[in-house]
Design a protein around this nucleic acid. Structure first.
Lengths: 114, 114
DNA sequence: TTGACACATTCCCATATCGGCGTGTAAGTT
DNA sequence: AACTTACACGCCGATATGGGAATGTGTCAA
């Protein structure tokens, strides 16, 4: 078996840096392909291909208007990534250390109560 | 050019489901390879290979003890993913809607003050 | 109709992948 | 020393990739 297709899930789709850049460029509203081509400095076909991948995993949606196609982001599709990573947030977020302290105190209180 | 190496960054390393499973298995403490093999139901060589990828991107670290190698997670390496995804959190987290409301109120107050 | 424009699709190709399988290597056991 | 255990590493093969380049398709303009 080879590596999983980029269109398998959002994790794979977003592993590609250019695809993340596209998301970023789409963060504050829809954009036609041409504008993305300019902004990313990539050839138009590659941008279209990246957009296709993003479409297939539901990260972007298209609106056709004349000969232009406006792509907009569907950030909701990123939730699975967020959900998975969130579990490890404790590693760098010291705010959780304080929660740990509180939990520890509660546990102590429990012990003392029994 | 082909697809970026899995060892390029954490995004690529974690795109592989089994590698995420390994992280999950390591979430609550270090484990020897054999235990991971059991838990994941994968062949030992593949687990070792996955671990190597995770090591190269700094997601896991090893501790040698006799003929065993205990791997532990370094969740901090996931921060880049979290940071990137967090920017889109607004899409699914309604809590941000309330923040938007607050910002709107502040803006209104600013307008009224001037 | 002809042409220009905005994209999408296709072909080509060098490359890295993941799993299967066999083998190396160091540590512990008898 | 011979054997076993716990891993790491190597080779193989089918496959999808991403960029380059060319071509196809639908829309608007003259």
């Amino acid at each position: 078996m080879a590596r999983a297709a980029t269109t398998t899930d959002v994790f794979n789709a977003v592993a590609e840096p250019r695809r993340r850049e596209i998301c970023d460029a789409l963060a504050d509203g829809e954009r036609p392909v041409g504008e993305l081509v300019e902004q990313l400095g990539l050839a138009q076909p590659q941008v279209s291909k990246h957009l296709k991948v993003l479409r297939e995993v539901g990260l972007v949606e298209v609106r056709e208007e004349g000969r232009q196609r406006f792509y907009r982001l569907n950030g909701h599709a990123l939730k699975p990534i967020h959900d998975w990573v969130k579990g490890y947030e404790r590693s760098w977020n010291e705010r959780f250390d304080r929660i740990d302290d509180v939990l520890e105190e509660l546990k102590q209180a429990e012990v003392e109560r029994s």
